[in-house]
Design a protein around this nucleic acid. Structure first.
Length: 570
RNA sequence: GCGCCCAUAGUUCAGUGGAUAGAACACUAGCCUUCUAAGCUGGAUACGUAGGUCCGAUUCCUACUGGGCGCACCA
């Protein structure tokens, strides 16, 4: 247990002892609105029943009863209905700094998950279609959630599921086959090119009368795995997959396993036949459906009336494979909120089939543009590639502007980290139930609540370390030398990091980490301006350097949870 | 029609059943012979409407209004 958690437990325990019953939890102790009021606070409204006094009197009564026998608590004071505790700053500083030096990159982690096996599926690209900033939100959210759950002690298996077999594939291939010449010239990135062919296919579909039939025919050919269409499918599928690999590598995302829809269709059709026999599915208007009207879940179409598969055909056997082969307790699907009903239907079917594992649709709102909804079909999207290139170019300009003496290589390396950090942070800083209206101009700014601000904060502290010429910071310092108010504030903030990690894990909420880091960075920058380090007297200097090094460790750990790298210089 | 989500400052977002509702951007006035000005300091403005629960509601509940999304062969 971390220092602050321990202190809270102790206080709660003493309070309950004084009350003679278990009323207060450690989590009931919150931070007052400003630090002059104290460090931890108990609202005494909840004690009224036990004490039979009004809240204010309860607070005074409790303060007397506790009579300062709580470790780490220096004093108490009553303000109105609140009993506030002032923590012994030296004690906390010693504990926290030591703790961080000892645990380093593990600081903040806990064992809440008890090693439980959890599978989390995200990114979920479609081959033969564009990978755009909607997918970016998904992969950033999924990856950060994976990191956060790991930090909370879960055994997390990150996987992705790629749709390489839907009607969108048939559309793209039909357009490519019937219009090949147009696409032959100057194809730079083949995976990227497919996205453009798909957009054009949708245009043609509207304009050409026979298009629908042709697409259906192509679909059938691919499903039957025969003809020119199938051959081309195999080839072009690889283009997309290679393209995704490149993106994952760039983002630093590593999946344990990537599933493909095409690998589950055959098995799925067997399962569907069996479910038809069992009466879980039925035929209607020529199609195979699950009638879930009674459960208020509407109707789910499983197979089209022409016999081709819809998404549940592959999703069901995939879920089964996850449960059986990987032996997981919990299965998390990171998918856009618009598929909420579908997942309720899918989970219901799986439960009907007897699967008792926990299934979670971890949803998030979509990304739109200032001018309206994004649509892969119409091509009204900002593609991943386009965003990355703009971000990178802008990062490079900003970096070069500040470091005329840097080599091209050094600038490129920094710009890479800054641009990737910016992209990830833009996607994670907003809560998952907010629609993101993606404003590229704002995203290209590196001021204020941005990843660059966090990275910059880290880098400028690193610069102090370099100039200090002290190689290894040590935890053995005299904390009496950290007497500045801003120092206590920083230490208290660092002490709160573990509970932030816990909260982010409980709520699947990377934005919680993002906010914490920004607040911490603000405090570090404030300190940087107000308190000199290198010019301080020797012992004080050592203490300040040690404290700053723990602050940087926390920044690095937190950014790591968001998949963002730090820079030594920028 | 049914269901889900959202509504806080000019804008984009935080936040809590309780102590003065916070940031960032934008606007504006300052700060580079203290360690990186991608920074720091100062300055205005906000809880959609109406009820209910409660000692106390911006927070929970209900209705309404406004916006978004989903509901049979797209994924």
């Amino acid at each position: 247990m971390y220092a602050l958690e321990k202190i809270k437990e102790n206080i709660a325990e003493k309070i309950n002892k004084a009350l003679g019953e278990e009323i207060i939890k450690a989590s009931s102790l919150v931070c007052p609105p400003n630090s002059e009021m104290g460090d931890l606070s108990l609202a005494c409204f909840q004690l009224v029943k036990a004490t039979k006094k009004n809240p204010g009197e309860s607070a005074s009564w409790l303060m007397e009863k506790l009579s300062l026998e709580i470790p780490a608590v220096k004093s108490m004071k009553v303000i109105g209905p609140y009993l506030n505790f002032i923590i012994d700053k030296d004690f906390l500083a010693e504990e926290v700094i030591e703790e961080i030096f000892k645990t380093k990159e593990k600081y903040g982690q806990n064992k809440e998950g008890k090693g439980e096996k959890v599978m989390i599926e995200y990114s979920n690209g479609n081959t033969h279609k564009e990978y755009h900033i909607g997918h970016l939100r998904n992969i950033c959210f999924g990856e950060a959630t994976k990191e956060i759950l790991s930090a909370n002690g879960y055994d997390v298996i990150p996987v992705s599921y790629i749709n390489d077999f839907g009607i969108h594939v048939a559309k793209t291939l039909w357009n490519y086959l019937t219009n090949k010449k147009e696409w032959e010239e100057g194809r730079e990135d083949k995976g990227y090119l497919l996205g453009k062919i798909y957009v054009d296919a949708n245009r043609r579909e509207k304009e050409e009368e026979t298009a629908k039939q042709m697409i259906q025919l192509t679909m059938k050919k691919i499903e039957a795995r025969e003809g020119e269409e199938y051959k081309l499918w195999k080839e072009t599928r690889k283009w997309s997959i290679d393209y995704f690999d490149k993106i994952y590598k760039e983002l630093g995302v590593k999946f344990k396993k990537i599933f493909y829809e095409s690998e589950f269709i055959d098995e799925g059709k067997k399962v569907v036949a069996k479910l038809l026999e069992e009466g879980i599915l039925k035929k209607s208007e020529g199609a195979v459906i699950a009638d879930l009207e009674e459960k208020k879940l509407g109707i789910l179409v499983v197979e089209r009336s022409d016999g081709t598969a819809l998404y549940p055909v592959a999703d069901i056997p995939l879920a089964i494979e996850k449960f059986k082969k990987y032996n997981i307790k919990k299965s998390i699907y990171v998918v856009d909120v618009r598929q909420g009903l579908y997942f309720q239907q899918l989970f219901f079917l799986l439960q009907q089939m007897g699967y008792k594992q926990e299934m979670v649709h971890l949803d998030y709102e979509f990304v739109k543009l200032p001018e309206g909804m994004m649509s892969s079909r119409s091509g009204n999207v900002i593609t991943y590639k386009e965003l990355k290139e703009k971000m990178f170019a802008q990062s490079k300009i900003e970096t070069a502007k500040r470091h005329e003496d840097w080599s091209e290589k050094k600038i490129v390396e920094a710009a890479e980290k800054i641009s990737l950090g910016a992209m990830k942070f833009e996607m994670l800083k907003v809560g998952s139930d907010n629609v993101i209206t993606f404003d590229i101009a704002k995203a290209l700014s590196f001021e204020g609540y941005t990843a660059a601000y966090l990275q910059y904060t880290y880098a400028r502290i690193q610069s102090i370390f370099k100039k200090s010429k002290i190689k290894n910071q040590k935890s053995k310092i005299n904390v009496k030398n950290l007497s500045e108010e801003k120092e206590s504030g920083l230490i208290f903030k660092m002490a709160k990091y573990p509970e932030t990690v816990r909260k982010a894990g409980e709520n699947y909420d990377p934005a919680e980490i993002a906010r914490y880091l920004f607040e911490l960075a603000q405090m570090i920058n404030d300190y940087y301006h107000a308190v000199p380090v290198l010019k301080a007297e020797e012992e004080i200097k050592k203490a300040r350097l040690a404290m700053l090094s723990t602050a940087c460790q926390v920044m690095k750990n937190g950014l790591g949870l968001l998949g963002i790298e730090v820079l030594e210089e920028m």
